[in-house]
């Protein structure tokens, strides 16, 4: 791996980390506000996280 590749990979991981943090944090807030909706919030959270993860992995894979 060359330096630009490594920097790019780092940027991807930073972006994905911010995104996952947002998703997780907001889901926690939602659960705290409405504990009875925990199941639905978790399902939605996992789907969005998976989509984000797919994007990040796709970028890493294409940039390899």
């Amino acid at each position: 791996m060359t330096i630009p590749n490594l920097v790019g990979a780092g940027l991807i991981v930073i972006g994905a980390g911010i995104g996952l943090g947002q998703i997780g944090g907001r889901a926690m807030e939602g659960i705290a506000r409405q504990p009875e909706a925990t199941g639905k919030i978790q399902t939605a959270m996992i789907i969005i996280a998976a989509l984000l993860e797919g994007l990040a992995f796709g970028a890493l894979f294409l940039g390899k």
Binding site: A50, L51, E53, G54, L55, F57, G58, L60, F61
Partner: peptide
């Protein structure tokens, strides 16, 4: 489907 493929493979 492309993201399905990459996600599983990469994980």
């Amino acid at each position: 489907p492309f993201s399905l493929m990459i996600r599983l493979f990469a994980n």
